[in-house]
């Protein structure tokens, strides 16, 4: 028998790519423990930037704002996204193609276009409505509400796609069986469909939360003057090169949290698939 030799090139490319992916991150991690404020030289090991990070009121305020926005947008987009997935899955209507395009295309439109288009919408609405609302003492301006509306809009499509995939995966005969046995539509939904798609809904919600928590570009377009979310804070710190030592520590915290979330997510997913087998 002929011995088949595998090329080493793919393995080498993979290793080099991992080096490429991690070198900058590892260097930031090392710098975060550097006692010197400037990255140029090593002044000994220190945890002081982490301590400073936890005593930075601006960061805490930004974190709270980001969390409020992320929680509200996740909740609403998960409900709306799940409903639209169910409607799309069941629908046989001619509108389905248009509906699907409405859900699908936001996933591929660059975020800057979503940001500017929503800003234009809000500016137009404000210019029409403020003369009407001014006598009532109501002032319409960009702020948390416009940010949350924008976040719901871009999170929704992701939830729909994840739930829709789950709906396509499972056996429709289970639902038909329940209905054949006399279960009502609502009963079938709550006792059969919902438990089956719940993992998809949870995955979609997690996805939405991460997207909302991380978003900078769209937020930047529709935010008001004082709305500093965590990504907005980080962007301005990077841009003006201020507080970089604290930023190093913050990056490491982000990395560790991401690692934990992704690791447990992967564990959860593999557990699920093994159960199925």
């Amino acid at each position: 028998m002929k011995v088949i030799r595998h090329s080493r090139i793919p393995f080498i490319v993979t290793l080099l790519t991992l080096v490429f992916l991690y070198t900058p991150l590892v260097l930031v991690a090392i710098a975060s423990f550097n006692a010197s404020k400037y990255g140029g030289s090593w002044a000994g090991f220190s945890m002081k930037w982490y301590i400073k990070l936890f005593h930075e009121p601006d960061i805490w305020n930004a974190l709270v704002k980001t969390l409020v926005i992320a929680v509200i947008s996740t909740a609403i987009s998960t409900v709306l996204g799940t409903l639209s997935a169910l409607a799309l899955h069941r629908s046989t209507s001619k509108l389905k193609a248009i509906y699907y395009a409405l859900v699908h295309t936001p996933l591929v439109v660059p975020d800057i276009l979503q940001g500017i288009s929503l800003l234009l919408l809000f500016v137009t609405i404000f210019s029409v409505c403020s003369p009407l609302l001014a006598p009532l003492g109501i002032k319409m301006e960009l702020g948390l509400t416009t940010i949350i509306i924008a976040h719901i809009t871009f999170c929704m499509s992701y939830v729909t796609m994840v739930v829709l995939e789950r709906l396509h995966e499972f056996d429709n005969s289970l639902i038909e069986a329940a209905q054949d046995l006399g279960a009502s539509g609502l009963y079938t939904f709550f006792r059969v469909t919902l438990p089956l798609i719940l993992p998809g809904i949870i995955a979609g919600a997690l996805f939405a939360f991460m997207l909302s928590f991380d978003d900078f570009v769209i937020t930047f377009f529709v935010k008001g003057a004082g709305d500093t979310t965590l990504p907005v804070y980080i962007q301005s710190a990077i841009r003006h090169g201020k507080n970089t030592a604290v930023l190093n520590a913050l990056s490491v915290v982000f990395l560790i949290l991401t690692f934990i979330i992704v690791f447990s997510g992967q564990k959860l997913l593999t557990m699920k698939t093994e159960e199925h087998k």
């Binding site: 991690y22 190093n248 982000f254 990395l255």
Partner: peptide, 28 residues
């Protein structure tokens, strides 16, 4: 390996850009 590739994917976009800015820094 998959985990190692996915983690940067999920890491905040700004943090990744920041890491490169530090990496290419004139004093880096």
């Amino acid at each position: 390996f998959l985990l190692l590739i996915i983690v940067p994917f999920w890491t905040n976009f700004l943090i990744r850009i920041y890491a490169w800015k530090m990496f290419l820094h004139p004093d880096g």
